[in-house]
Design a protein around this nucleic acid. Sequence first.
DNA 1: TGAATTCCGACCAAACAACTAGGGTATCCA
DNA 2: TGGATACCCTAGTTGTTTGGTCGGAATTCA
Lengths: 142, 142
Amino acid sequence: MKLSAKVEYGVRAMAVLAFYYQSGPFPLRKIAEQENISLKFLEHIFFKLRTSGLIFSMRGTRGGYMLSRPPAEINIGDIVRAVEGPITPVDCLSENGTDPCCHRKEGCLTRQVWEKLRDKINDVLDDVSLYELIDFKSTHIK
Amino acid sequence: MKLSAKVEYGVRAMAVLAFYYQSGPFPLRKIAEQENISLKFLEHIFFKLRTSGLIFSMRGTRGGYMLSRPPAEINIGDIVRAVEGPITPVDCLSENGTDPCCHRKEGCLTRQVWEKLRDKINDVLDDVSLYELIDFKSTHIK
DNA sequence: TGAATTCCGACCAAACAACTAGGGTATCCA
DNA sequence: TGGATACCCTAGTTGTTTGGTCGGAATTCA
């Protein structure tokens, strides 16, 4: 029941982008330095974030990444799902019906528990936006 | 963000024990057959369930396992934590303070999100007891 | 005794996670 | 135009976890 390091890094990196939103494209190298994350590793994460449409990129000497929506419109759940894929506490809930547990949708006793769990996890993660994250920072740190 | 197969098996096996509660010790081999789980693998799982105090065992020819409390007093969260250990969405939340994220408890922006996530997961899992699981079965299947 | 059962430690193979390496390509600016 | 910078892509490496097996010892009961 763990999130991966990729997700942690992804969220922290996106928080940086949120903080510098409206300052033009922000280079990955700086994020890597600020957050002490391997640049090469971050590249992989940002590939997923970009193909998920959460950010866009600009190449060249003054290039970098930018959020494609305002921080208030990007929530943690978006980032988690972009980096890790859809949240499925047990394989039984994913759509490829190749597992023996789910022959009978009615008969799987535990299924409804896992469904509720999945929904609640999504709820929590979708309830916090990047804006709230950096707003907390501004209030308590700066 | 996945539960392990151990947890799935553990919950299903505990549901069987709940169903045969008050019928004396129930042998692991029968559970393995009913639920189509490797007996040897189940042994590992039941070691954890036993040392966590959720079940007790009786050796010998008519031995087996029994719930140590009524089904209504054992919830899914108990089983998950017994088999997988405490739920910690990110390592940052576990108590060994060896990670770089948590020098400053106040400054970790994302920490409160993960804390809320952890709490909600526990809430969902603690909200369903074995009794409710097998009661659902009795109502809809039998 | 012998069969059925729990208990216990070691072992193993495959998958996964967390990086790392290194080059390729596009773009920008001077 | 040319070099600097940044993004893009493939693949390998290393260590841990997961899921599972094996063999055997201890215990109980008929």
